[in-house]
Amino acid sequence: MKTLISKSNPVNSVPEGAVRTSRFLTSAFWSGVTWSFIRAVLVIGIAFIILYPLIIKLSSSIMAESDLFDLTVKWIPRRLDMRSILRNYRDVYEEMNYLVSFRNSVTLAFLVSSLQLASCTFIGYGFARFKFPGSGFLFGMVILTLLVPPQMIMVPLFLNFRFFDFFGIAGWFGREPINLLGTYWPFVLTSATGMGLKNGLFIYIMRQFFKGMPKDLEEAALVDGAGQIRTFFTIMLPGAAPAILIVFLFSFVWQWNDIFLTSMYMRRSATLLPFMLERLTSSFGGYQYSDEYISVIRNTGMLMFIVPLLFVYGFLQRYFIESVERTGIVG
């Protein structure tokens, strides 16, 4: 890499006039080409490794059962049989109760991510712009919530929501604790208070972003008599669009994929995509289906699980990647 980079600069060391006729003979030209070639190989290779699991899923979802036993078939089935492809997808679609579980998963992920977005934006702004007694300490606690593995508080949280007594208040009135498990309330409560999955990271991102925004506009608005809340909503929030997008994308994706918290708060029998996916193959047990066919079903299911995320990502990626540089994730 050393020689390649350093040699690619001095085009002007070639004598004048020679450049036009013998461009292909300069070492600078060739090292440039070599470096582009190496870079292309590297980028394509890494991209292939990343996409490899996706390619496996796609390729096995279009296979008929007979292709799986055919040793000459690796990626593309011998004959593209629309009927068997459709059958794979229809089986999965019906078995996962796709429409219902998709709707439930979207609702849950949307609910959770919008709540987390709202609370983390609010909190992040509070940490970025205001000094108050203990603010430094409190921000240290944000970092602490990031560092502590969620497994540590999983059992107490579970019990708190199983026997939810409004933090002791219900007990004063002689009320029995209620069971919040199996409802969306645990998600709502933790997300609205910035305690959901990796919310410390979101608070951190929002804080860094707000810190990087110029103070002038905000101060002007305050001087002109806009209240603090109004300044936040009309001046700061529109300016924070890139960071909001990143936080929303992360939070949506992580909630969509999450099985740890979701299986703790919801019963495993809930009609949500990850649970349906987990159970997908259990009804294909027994002897009438081969392991290979079950694998086809499972891969098709995983593909159908990921596709909505790919859509969200594909839709947001332009803004997402452009905004990386402006988010100031880097403090």
């Binding site: 609010f122 509070g126 940490f127 205001f130 000094k131 944000v142 208070t193 603090q228």
Partner: peptide
Amino acid sequence: LWGIVFTAPF
């Protein structure tokens, strides 16, 4: 005070 209000959820 506003700082405390904004970070209150946390």
